[in-house]
């Protein structure tokens, strides 16, 4: 039910923002910015339930909870980078958006490298 509400809010906001495209372009960008923040905020609030579930599964992982935390961190980083690059692209600055996307990818790669390293260690201990 919430999906329909969000979709309608998005369409209504875009129509209003489009009205300002030729009259005053900075307002169309501001309305677009607020729209994506509003929709983003409404879905983030629903995500807290999911994260409680992840905390509950921590007991099954016996100790390497660190990987779950890194995965959740990656999720957060990709969320923020997606939001900000979309807003920059809307405002017309696609090069800035590309920079943000590349920055997000590199941060996630750095985060993932520790997992890769522990995997390599595990393989090394087995092979020896």
């Amino acid at each position: 039910m919430i999906v329909i509400k969000i979709a309608l809010i998005g369409i209504a906001g875009v129509v209003v923002a489009n009205f300002f495209k030729n009259v005053k372009s900075e307002y169309s960008m501001l309305i677009g910015l607020f729209l994506s923040v509003l929709i983003f905020f409404s879905i983030i609030i629903k995500l807290t339930g999911l994260l409680e579930m992840v905390e509950k599964t921590e007991s099954m992982l016996q100790g390497n909870y660190r990987f779950m935390e890194i995965l959740i961190k990656m999720l957060g980083i990709s969320y923020i980078c997606e939001l900000s690059s979309g807003i920059c692209k809307d405002a017309g600055y696609s090069s800035v958006a590309a920079q943000i996307v590349i920055f997000g990818k590199i941060t996630i790669m750095i985060l993932g490298s520790s997992i890769l390293f522990t995997l390599m260690e595990m393989i090394d201990t087995y092979l020896r």
Partner: peptide, 16 residues
């Protein structure tokens, strides 16, 4: 303020 609130929630939620 809304943008700040959003980023605070994300930081708190994903323990960034």
């Amino acid at each position: 303020p809304y943008i700040y609130e959003l980023f605070e929630t994300i930081k708190k939620l994903f323990s960034l």
